[in-house]
């Protein structure tokens, strides 16, 4: 099944990029060694993908019909879109690229399930909004709980470090559960791959991306998030994990980066400080449109040129 090569590439790229959303803060602040973060992230991505990655697979299978060849093209075009847009420093979401490519396949075949598509789009919008609301809801009660413990500097530090490791691991679990469908979801329709096999293959691809290529992104992205104090970073991670996990249960792959932005904004609202600038928010909105359009256009081009 050489066609799986494109999804392996997509999974690897997703792992290399998205690991920073869960362990970037801890690694960049030297709280955790990269090797430890990579092992924890990979392990929990695999567990999440295998345990709960199936729902997203069914959503993608329902969105539009695929064959082995079109599944290969979906993964390839999504990977190329993500790579190109990242290279051009444009905002991009893997989930949105895959959906754009799947919709293009569906349009070419004359069948796109609009109700599934609507559900997916609503969930995209709901991702940063949901993370914002969860972060706002969690901040004060968690803060009160922490204050009530009356900890010394060292006790406070220890609790937050343990919390960041646990929240990061949960975030990795949610990442695996939610995003594995992006990697191999296109191959599940028509029995090309079983859901279980797709989950394992996708999970291992993502894990390999985390272990081999996520260090640089973790340090770059993590340094940006380090401006948050440790408690706020913990609330952001928990909110992001819960949001992404919720959408994994619903069965719609979403962007972990957009969940992080939403959660950071939520913390800022509660604290009365500006934590996210307008440009970042506009970038999210732009990605909702530009990513699926770019991936869809590329897919249609290939399908048309090669008369597939």
């Amino acid at each position: 099944m050489w066609q799986l090569s494109s999804s392996a590439f997509l999974g690897w790229a997703l792992g290399a990029n998205d690991a920073s959303n869960v362990f970037g803060t801890a690694v960049a602040s030297r709280m955790l060694r990269f090797s430890t973060a990579a092992i924890l992230c990979s392990l929990f991505v695999i567990i999440g993908a295998v345990r709960e990655g199936g729902a997203g697979m069914h959503t993608y299978a329902a969105l539009s019909p695929t064959t082995l060849t079109t599944a290969f093209i979906v993964s390839l075009c999504a990977a190329l879109t993500v790579t190109l847009m990242t290279w051009r420093r444009l905002p991009v979401s893997t989930s949105q690229a895959v959906v754009g490519a799947l919709v293009a396949v569906g349009l070419h075949a004359g069948h796109v399930d609009l109700s599934t598509l609507s559900k997916v789009v609503v969930c995209w919008i709901g991702t940063p909004v949901g993370a914002l609301l969860i972060a706002m809801t969690l901040y004060i009660p968690l803060g009160r709980l922490l204050n009530s413990l009356n900890l010394t500097l060292f006790g406070h530090d220890r609790l937050l470090r343990i919390g960041l490791i646990i929240a990061g691991s949960y975030g990795a679990y949610a990442l695996g559960a939610n995003n594995v469908a992006n990697v191999t979801g296109a191959f599940v329709g028509d029995g090309m791959l079983s859901v279980e096999a797709a989950c394992w293959f996708g999970a291992i691809s993502i894990a390999l991306g985390v272990i081999t290529f996520s260090r640089g992104v973790m340090l770059t992205v993590g340094r940006g998030l380090v401006k948050l104090d440790a408690f706020s970073a913990l609330v952001v991670l928990i909110a992001e994990g819960l949001t992404v996990h919720l959408y994994a249960i619903i069965g719609v792959p979403v962007s972990t980066s957009q969940a992080v932005v939403g959660a950071v904004l939520g913390v800022g609202v509660i604290r009365g400080v500006r934590t996210v600038n307008k440009t970042t928010l506009l970038n999210i909105v732009a990605a909702w449109l530009s990513t699926p359009i770019a991936a869809g256009a590329l897919t249609l081009l290939i399908l048309t040129v090669f008369q597939l």
Binding site: D157, L160, R161, D229
Partner: peptide, 11 residues
């Protein structure tokens, strides 16, 4: 060693 950056800086 592993302490959070703000704890490190404060100390």
């Amino acid at each position: 060693k592993a302490l959070l950056p703000e704890s490190r800086d404060d100390l």
